[in-house]
Amino acid sequence: MIDVLTTAWNWIAEPLQYGFLRQAIWVSAFVGLVCAVLSCYVTLKGWSLMGDAVSHAVVPGVVISYALGIPFAVGAFAFGFGATVAIGYIKSKTRLKEDAVIGVVFTGFFAFGLVLVTKIPSNIDLFHILFGNVLGISRQDIIQTLIAGTLTLAVILLRRKDLLLFCFDPNHAKAIGLNTQMMYYTLLSVLALTIVTALQTAGIIMVVAMLVTPGATAYLLTDRFDRMLMISVAASVSACVLGTYFSYHFDVSTGGSIVVLLTVFFVLAMVFAPKYGLFAQRFRQRVYKKQLDEMSSPP
């Protein structure tokens, strides 16, 4: 018993003696927090694909920022947000459905980024952009992550009710005289900011998981938005911290382990959720069928 405890303690404590790991743990926890908050809105608004689009569209921005020597967050935000504006514009001017427009725009941006990264001489590691590198994150990048994340949290905290109304019933928002156009762009810009926040930790391929899975998991577990927010944050932050541990102990990709954990949480919720889980549904069906049988069978 004592043995197990000491082993567990060592498992937790040992990595903490390294500065870069302590740093990786709290940075990814912070990123997990920001993504979790936004993921509730993304899930409810049905913007998962939009999140994927923005994350891919930031690549040229990152490359150009490095080439020009400006903070990566600036370029990434500009291109990520720019892509969403392009998507909105093309959708309003053509008869295409949104998913087609999103598909065209984000692959276009991404391809442009690939071309740039292979042509512009820089010390950017494409692998790090794609898959994240929280263990080797620089002080500069941490500062940018913190600024982008804090900005996101502040905007959402201040406008949370309006944003929720906008997700639920944009027509009503308009009917009471609110500026829905501005809410649309506010939500898009915090989406882009969140992706900038998560870029260094998760990488652009994985960031969509951090933007969708925590919210989707929480959505299966509750009918109250406030609780959904808390569950989402709890799942996301613990996956980020644990994932970073796993990546150290088993020497595997950090972004990868975080997302694997998030997915495990999701599957657990999907199966065991008290009301919307597979078991609960099965159980309800059985009870219902039994009641029907009892009603229709002769006394």
Binding site: L44, L164, C167, F168, D169, N171, H172, K174, A175, I176, G177, Y219, T222, D223, R224, F225, M228
Partner: peptide
């Protein structure tokens, strides 16, 4: 008129997301 809260709209049922987590 809307800015003064003078117009209310009751949507058709199929326009509402009934699974949305609000009471």
């Amino acid at each position: 008129v809307q800015k003064r809260q003078l117009m209310a709209y009751v949507p058709q049922s199929d326009e509402v997301d009934w699974n949305f987590p609000v009471s």
